[in-house]
Amino acid sequence: MTQSMWHASGSNATLIRELAVIFGILLIAIFGIVVGLTLFSLRRRHRSLPQETLERLHQASAGTEAKLRTAVAIATGITVLILFGLTVVSISVGKIVSASMAPAGSLTIEVTGAQWWWKIRYANDDPSRILQTANEIHIPVGQSIAIRGNSGDVIHSFWVPSLQGKRDLIPGQPTYEWLQADRPGEYRGQCAEFCGLQHAHMAFWVIAEPADRFNAWMDHQLEPAMEPADEQSRRGREVFLKAACVLCHAIRGTGAGAQIGPDLTHFGSRKTIAAGTLVNTKGNLAGWIADPQNIKPGTHMATVPIQPAEMQPLIDYLESLR
């Protein structure tokens, strides 16, 4: 598991990493020179007691001053040149990676930040192929993805370091960026703008797959939730539909259609629970439903009282929503 900008797997992140290497080498060299020159001046220091009476130097000779002036002027000139160069490469790379317009033919995904999870919506001209999900973004490798960012409450920031720099999600003001994965893989992302109590637990995953697998995933996700396969799951669905769960969550294909919390239609297929807080296992899910405030203090997920006998069917049902 990594969330590192060095582990670049997308075109933009790779460009930024290359720029970082150039900056890094150059700046470390300059730092070394400046510190070296500073320490080297110590060879002229007074080596005796601090209270010794010192000669009245006060002014270097005219020749020395002239040499120093030249040296400082040259150093300043070099600084200006280096900074000018760095500015030019920064702006040219910035033109690509910070562009708000994605290349033509991009797949548009709308990301809406909420305290403390991510609402994901795949845009499509065909209304029947608009997909809504949460906390996990699947993308096809090699295709540019336009991210349209928005927020339902406070400012968040969308960031997948392996693929692209960050973009703030601002309520009432859409923001745009684009990214592209060059290799299949699972890339962790996290909210980067402080957004309240559980800012620390607002992660998500971007899963890049070859186009055919992505299309298969998409087709499957567009299907309504699977009918329960066994009696246990059927009971679980009843528990879900009768409990307060339906006040916030949607499961397409059932009567649950609320849009306040994450869409659970294919919940069982996701890697994590509660925006990257827990691995998606039955045990973790039971703990999360029983006492969300213990796992993610301050979360807006309500503590819904579920009878102990009903918990297992409910868990089985939700995990069966693959």
Partner: peptide, 17 residues
């Protein structure tokens, strides 16, 4: 030196926050 890195828009998009 790190300030110069943060001045660069592409690097800042990664390093910011």
């Amino acid at each position: 030196m790190t300030g110069v890195m943060l001045a660069s828009i592409p690097l800042d998009l990664q390093a910011h926050d």
